[in-house]
Amino acid sequence: MAHPHGPTGQPTPSHGHDREIESLEEFDAVVHRGSLVGHRLQSLDLTGRTFALLTHDTTGAVFLGCHMEAEAAAKVRADGALVFPPVPDVPFNPYRGLLYSPDELFAGLRAEGYDATPDALTYEWFRRTRADGDIFASMLRSVHDDAISDALDELLAGTPVVGVMGGHAMARGSDAYAGAARLGRSLARQGLTVATGGGPGAMEAANLGAYTAPHPDDVLDEALEILAKAPSFTPSVTDWARAAFDVRDRWPRGGDSIGIPTWFYGHEPPNPFPGHIAKYFANATREDGLLARCTAGVIFLPGAAGTVQEIFDNTTPNYYESRGEPTPMVLVDQAHWTERLPAWPLLQALAAERPMAARIALVDSVDDAPAALRALAAAPPIV
Rank of each mutant, 00 (worst) to 15 (best):
A73Y: 07
A147T: 07
L46G: 00
D256A: 11
F136P: 05
A169F: 02
F273D: 02
T238L: 09
F63T: 07
F264D: 03
R185F: 14
T159Y: 04
E222S: 09
R40K: 11
V143I: 13
A378G: 15
R33N: 12
A282P: 03
A369Q: 08
R253G: 07
F273C: 02
D256Q: 08
P302A: 14
H168C: 11
S149T: 11
I382Y: 15
D150T: 12
I277E: 00
T262K: 00
L121A: 11
A147Y: 04
G324N: 14
H67S: 09
F312R: 06
W337D: 09
D146F: 08
G275V: 03
G324K: 14
P269G: 02
P200Y: 07
I260P: 00
M68T: 02
L187V: 08
R242G: 01
A157F: 11
A73K: 14
Y280H: 13
T129Q: 10
K229T: 04
P274W: 00
G167F: 10
L373P: 00
L187F: 11
G255C: 08
H32G: 12
R359D: 11
E104Q: 09
P380K: 13
P160A: 03
I226K: 00
P235N: 00
A349F: 14
A137R: 12
M356A: 11
S186P: 06
V332P: 13
A351R: 15
V31E: 04
F27E: 06
N271P: 01
M356C: 12
A304I: 06
T58A: 15
H168W: 10
